[in-house]
């Protein structure tokens, strides 16, 4: 015979902040700040309604994209953008892999780790546009500045994510291969790279995609590519040409998304 429970015992998940007064103060403070912050952005309904009309004109321009008027410019911009994308991705990956390995805590001595992490931090803290402005000032207008910008940005992105993936690998096979008397470079080639290969491939394809989209953005500040063409079209109020360019960009990004999905599935 089982004895009846004396009393139903209550249970609630423990709150994130144990002190109830502190909990209420934090919530109330956050709500108050949100209200005050909204007050400072000067929501202007008149400007929004004016902008609405301009926006509609912009969108209506897009309903009839014009590929032919600026076709030569568009073609040249696209070729520049694509070559900028491919070269910067390849160069970026080539530099990122060693830096990513160096930034993995479980593989290298502390000074190397700190150096590689510092390189990544510098690359990540500078947004593409800012780097592009700097590089256009340094090497002049054109796709070379864009190539340098995107290579630089790729390093921060790919090295960081690769390093984190390397830190998560299964250490057992690495220990086993080390125990056979394998020198460090071969240990990386046999024990580490195969474990991160699918992720590296996926990240590289994703970065190719990002670099193409970014090539359109850095073009606006003078670093060549389709962005320069797009900027010119918008400056001249040629929304139909701008629409044509945007449609091409979207089509290429979607195509690359589809292809990278295929490749990743095949390389599991």
């Amino acid at each position: 015979m089982r004895a009846a429970p004396a009393a139903a015992r209550r249970w609630r998940p423990p709150p994130l902040i144990a002190n109830p007064w502190l909990r209420i103060a934090v919530l109330a403070g956050a709500a108050l700040y949100l209200v005050l912050a909204l007050g400072t952005v000067e929501v202007n309904w008149a400007r929004l309604s004016d902008g609405w009309a301009r926006g509609l004109r912009f969108v209506s321009g897009f309903l009839e994209p014009n590929f032919s008027r600026r076709w030569d410019d568009i073609l040249q911009g696209m070729i520049e953008s694509l070559s900028m994308t491919v070269t910067s991705t390849v160069v970026g990956i080539a530099i990122s892999v060693p830096i990513g390995i160096g930034a993995a805590r479980n593989l290298v001595p502390r000074p190397v780790y700190l150096l590689c992490r510092a390189i990544i931090a510098v690359s990540r803290s500078l947004q593409e546009i800012i780097v592009a402005i700097l590089l256009v000032a340094m090497v002049g207008f054109g796709p070379f500045a864009g190539f340098l910008t995107l290579s630089f940005a790729t390093i921060g992105f790919l090295s960081k994510l690769l390093a984190e993936d390397i830190e998560d690998i299964d250490p057992a096979p690495v220990e086993a291969i080390r125990a056979t008397g394998t020198p460090w470079p071969s240990l990386i080639a046999f024990g580490v790279l195969p474990q991160v290969a699918p992720r590296l491939l996926g990240l590289s394809l994703y970065r190719l995609d990002i670099n193409f989209r970014e090539s359109a953005v850095v073009g606006i500040v003078g670093a060549g590519g389709i962005g320069a063409t797009l900027n010119t079209a918008i400056d001249r109020y040629e929304f139909d040409s701008a629409a044509a360019i945007l449609i091409l960009i979207i089509a290429i990004v979607m195509a690359s998304e589809y292809v990278s999905g295929l490749v990743r599935g095949w390389a599991k």
């Binding site: 291969i177 056979t180 020198p183």
Partner: peptide, 9 residues
């Protein structure tokens, strides 16, 4: 991989 101690990179 048991022979890696004997072959170059």
């Amino acid at each position: 991989s048991g022979r890696l101690g004997y072959v170059g990179f």
